[in-house]
């Protein structure tokens, strides 16, 4: 019996040591670039989920707006559905990689739609009223007088494009971080729990035996 325990422990140790950090879960990640939603799916460990079914649903009702499949790299892309754009729906991107693998990614309306510009005129009128107020007088006069170099909406678009461009690699990095599989800490923690749980079972059994 003792030999067996030693053998099994060695087997376990080998498993722990040789374990590559990858396994059995499908990941999905999506972001927006210039009106197109781009997404990636992969199994944990980075293997792309090829030809996986992608469902785009409205989060509130669950209605399927769009259906597509991932390519051989595990990526997919589609333009924002008109209905979603019109009704400002929060999109739930569901990936189904077969054999019961499923995961989802939430893309809220704020994420994929440009920021509402309704508030812009308000700001302007607010600023205009401030200009007439005594507080505004304290500001240097040139700053108030200069007109913006671009029309506001155009400027906003330029900024948005630039930010998107800069943020894209960060999004990728985030995706990669999210995908890193369970580490040694998780594994050892889990084994600790198992020993603990069976310790409790042993305790209960031993108490029953005494009675």
């Amino acid at each position: 019996m003792k030999q067996l325990s030693i053998f099994l422990s060695i087997l376990l140790l080998c498993l722990v040591i040789t374990t590559p950090v990858n396994a059995h879960k499908v990941n999905v990640f999506a972001y927006v670039e210039a009106g197109t939603i781009i997404g990636e799916t992969s199994f944990s460990g980075g293997r792309p989920a090829q030809n996986a079914e992608i469902l785009v649903q409205d989060r509130a009702t669950g209605a399927v707006l769009l259906q597509t499949r991932s390519d051989s790299q595990g990526t997919f892309s589609f333009s924002v559905p008109d209905r979603a754009r019109d009704e400002r729906l929060d999109l739930l991107i569901v990936v189904r990689a077969g054999e019961g693998h499923r995961n989802e990614w939430l893309l809220t309306a704020e994420d994929y739609l440009p920021v509402e510009t309704d508030t812009a005129p308000d700001d302007q009128s607010h600023a205009a009223s401030e200009r007439q107020s005594p507080v505004a007088i304290e500001l240097p006069p040139q700053q108030i007088a200069l007109p913006p170099p671009w029309p506001e909406d155009q400027l906003q678009q330029i900024i948005e494009t630039a930010v998107e461009k800069q943020v894209a690699p960060l999004k990728r990095l985030m995706l990669e971080t999210r995908q890193s599989g369970p580490g040694l800490r998780d594994i050892l923690g889990g084994i600790g729990y198992i020993v603990g749980i069976f310790g409790v079972i042993a305790l209960i059994k031993s108490q029953k035996g005494e009675k």
């Binding site: 376990l12 374990t19 460990g45 889990g190 198992i194 749980i197 059994k205 031993s206």
Partner: peptide, 29 residues
């Protein structure tokens, strides 16, 4: 029974860890 709890725990641990040993063959994971 009491004597086998230790082995059960060790085999449980083996099962727990084995799922991390990934075999990159075939279409799925």
């Amino acid at each position: 029974d009491y004597d086998r709890i230790m082995n059960t725990a060790i085999l449980t641990s083996a099962f727990f860890v084995a799922s991390l040993v990934h075999v990159p063959i075939g279409p799925g994971s």
